[in-house]
Design a protein around this nucleic acid. Structure first.
Length: 113
DNA sequence: ATAATGACTGAAT
DNA sequence: AATTCAGCCATTA
């Protein structure tokens, strides 16, 4: 399942993302923070980008800190993610943003913006 | 080993 | 409020 060989970082990212419960979303920064470095946000994004189509990782539950889907330029993937989240019970705001305080998993970690 | 990229983030303009 | 700039770090070329 998982691609032939992935480096440890990707694996760690997948582990964390896989732990996101249904109906919840997390952010790249949160995942990176859990990994130990809040600056690895972009690296996390890279890991998910390398994610294969047959992965078991709920990559669709990972969004940016704004509670917004990032690659909405890539219509197909972006719309699919949005659709999946809606199906899981995630509610999008008027501008398509998700309330991370409500659906965010381990986001803010006790701190809010 | 060096350079470029990226599904990010926060601060600055 | 929206857009731009710069920083951070792992992966890929």
């Amino acid at each position: 399942m998982r691609p032939p060989r992935f480096h440890s970082f990707h694996k760690t990212v997948y582990e964390v993302v896989s732990q996101v419960p249904c109906g919840r979303v997390t952010t790249y920064g949160a995942v990176a923070a859990i990994l130990g470095s809040p600056r690895l946000a972009h690296a996390v994004g890279f890991a998910l980008h390398a994610l294969p189509p047959d992965t078991d990782v709920p990559w669709h539950r990972v969004i940016n800190s704004r509670g917004r889907i990032s690659f909405r330029g890539d219509d197909i993937r972006g719309m699919e993610q949005e659709r999946r989240l809606l199906e899981e019970g995630i509610e999008f705001g008027p501008d398509g943003s998700v309330d991370l305080r409500r659906f965010g998993w381990m986001v803010g970690l006790g701190k809010e913006r």
